[in-house]
């Protein structure tokens, strides 16, 4: 709008009117803000972290989750929600328009975190790098959405199940295990491994495994180096929902070139298709039980390895298994499936 050419008094009148509009808008805003800190049990939430989304649904607050990230795919109901970006790439303007009471981030360092906070939207980024932090995050989120009791129950339940796994495997021999993320494109001769200090490594520990990786985090290691480790089992985490997936056989192929690795020689190279294996949320007890089953077989009954040391995979392992997507599948490792859920590896 141009005010050039208007008589002076006209301009004054205009600016006065503009001031009034601004003032009105401002009071409108403050009124809305005043309403904003709703009681926790009514807060609406946008969760940009898959584990937090799962926790919220598990706490019965799924109805108040009004948005997710593109990575949040569980529970299936979450898929119906609008996605507001990835971890760091967040559609700030749309979120401002929706104006949820709480936004959960993966990291508080995201640029969008600061912008939303500045706009008066509460943002949190609870850490989930260790199992203990997952329990704490469950409690934190419970308090945020007014479901503290359910949160305590959920955390206690998980703690109990993990403890049970730990008890069952305590007397069993530890299986020296390497967990890897497979490469689809060339990473050269490198492989991304799951190191210590990660929650998956903790789950592995509970499930009677011993992580052969000494380093922290998720380092990339050359196959030559890996071939020197005393690995008794190799677990390849290849969620079916991450495109493009290869067949089990293709994921295993790079390992078949290193027959001197004990795990390869004895055929204990397993492709795990469960996405929840690496999601630090309410399904981590499922993940621990899955690892336990994979490493020790059902109830550690000592069922003999089904394919010995010939280095040959049994037939059910060769083909491409159906990709379990979401949901609490219990038996996913191909051997377990073929063995009526009881294949010790």
């Amino acid at each position: 709008m141009s005010v050039h050419g208007l008589p002076l008094c006209g301009r004054a009148a205009l600016s006065a009117a503009w001031a009034a509009v601004v003032a009105l808008a401002a009071t409108g805003c403050t009124e809305e803000r005043a309403l904003s800190p709703r009681p926790p049990a009514e807060r609406t939430v946008v969760s940009l972290v898959p584990s937090a989304t799962e926790i919220l649904f598990a706490l019965g607050a799924g109805d108040r989750v009004v948005g997710r990230s593109i990575y949040c795919r569980y529970p299936p109901r979450a898929l119906m929600l609008p996605a507001y970006g990835s971890y760091t790439d967040v559609r700030v303007e749309e979120l401002l328009a929706v104006h949820p009471d709480l936004v959960i981030f993966n990291t508080s360092k995201a640029d969008s975190y600061g912008r939303l906070t500045a706009a008066g939207i509460r943002c949190i980024a609870p850490p989930t790098d260790t199992v203990q932090q997952v329990y704490e995050t469950i409690e934190v989120l419970g308090a945020e959405v007014g479901a503290a009791d359910r949160a305590s129950a959920l955390a206690d339940g998980l703690r109990e199940r993990l403890e049970a796994v730990r008890r069952r495997t305590a007397s069993l021999p530890r299986v020296r295990t390497l967990m890897v993320f497979p490469s689809v494109l060339g990473e050269g001769n490198q492989v991304s491994v799951i190191g210590r200090g990660t929650f998956v490594s903790e789950l592995l520990d509970a499930a009677g495994g011993e992580n052969v990786v000494e380093a922290e985090g998720y380092p990339r290691v050359h196959f030559e180096k890996v071939s020197q480790w005393p690995i008794e089992a190799i677990l390849i985490s290849a969620p079916g929902d991450i495109a493009p997936g290869l067949t089990d056989e293709q994921y295993r192929e790079p390992w078949m070139r290193w027959p001197t690795i004990p795990a390869v020689a004895s055929g204990r190279v397993v492709v795990l298709r469960e996405a929840y294996l690496t999601i630090p949320g309410p399904r981590m007890a499922d993940a621990a039980e899955l690892l336990e089953r994979t490493l020790h077989g059902e109830a550690a009954a000592g069922t003999s390895t089904s394919w010995g040391s010939s280095g040959k995979m049994p037939l059910p392992l060769m083909g491409r298994m159906p990709m379990p997507r979401y949901g609490p599948q219990t038996s996913v490792c191909p051997a377990a499936a073929g063995d009526a859920g009881g294949g010790a590896l």
Binding site: S183, L185, G186, E187, G188, N189, V191, F223, P254, R257
Partner: peptide
């Protein structure tokens, strides 16, 4: 990583 260039292949 691939766009930064890698050599060799596990296959």
């Amino acid at each position: 990583f691939w766009l930064m260039g890698g050599l060799g292949s596990p296959r």
